[in-house]
Design a binder for these strands. Structure first.
Lengths: 107, 107
DNA sequence: CCATCATATATCCGTGACGGATATAGTCAA
DNA sequence: TTGACTATATCCGTCACGGATATATGATGG
């Protein structure tokens, strides 16, 4: 039951998960590590947030189970919809960050 | 009972409120308008989120009641701690946005 | 040889942010 | 005089979050 439209803005947790999955299938634990790396350790995602968010994001059609097989690991990949959502959210975040830096800089 | 340390990352709602208050005292309704403007209408903050967040942010010592007086309006201003938190969060967001754009760009 | 740590997935559930609905009231224009 | 906009405020249901916990395997080392 995938939804038609992903709700923007994405939550920070969902954004980081999508970003971690861009261009590469990853399994859960790997996603956690990647999120830490991408955020310079400022975002620590526990298993509750990870698997809870994965459920929601799969339900929303942004992520799907991957093809890579490996007992013990479950791989996830971005869907086309997920990529679209990731790009849109990245642009939105960039704009907000730019606005903020302009404001702070002109003080 | 202001807290010593603001928890980073800030929630999107809190971040937008602090940003709206940077360099200028504003009353509640004005903050709502400014958040919409800063986010190009992508973030719509209702009164529930606004006043609830204001309570938390005052409690945390990031915002205080302003000096401007005007019956019917209540003004809010950033504290020094709030400015520090805003700058830190802006830097964090900028870094995350940059990492994301790099990833998406190299596809 | 056994303890401990890292890997890996998963569930449970309390807390709390969020946000729509709602209420109140003043102003101003059609 | 009705409706729209300004302005503040509270209530409360929902749901994302995230720590605690459980389980199991592989590696590391004392």
């Amino acid at each position: 039951m995938s939804k038609s439209e992903p709700p923007l803005p994405l939550t920070p947790a969902v954004f980081h998960i999508l970003l971690a999955l861009f261009g590469k299938e990853r399994h859960g634990y790997d996603i956690m590590q990647q999120v830490r790396a991408d955020s310079r350790d400022t975002v620590k995602m526990g298993p509750g947030t990870l698997y809870g968010s994965l459920d929601r994001v799969i339900e929303a059609g942004l992520v799907a189970r991957g093809d890579t097989q490996d007992s013990r690991r479950i791989y996830y990949r971005l869907t086309a919809l997920g990529q679209t959502a990731l790009r849109a959210e990245t642009e939105r975040l960039s704009r907000v960050a730019l606005v903020a830096r302009r404001q702070l800089g002109s003080a």
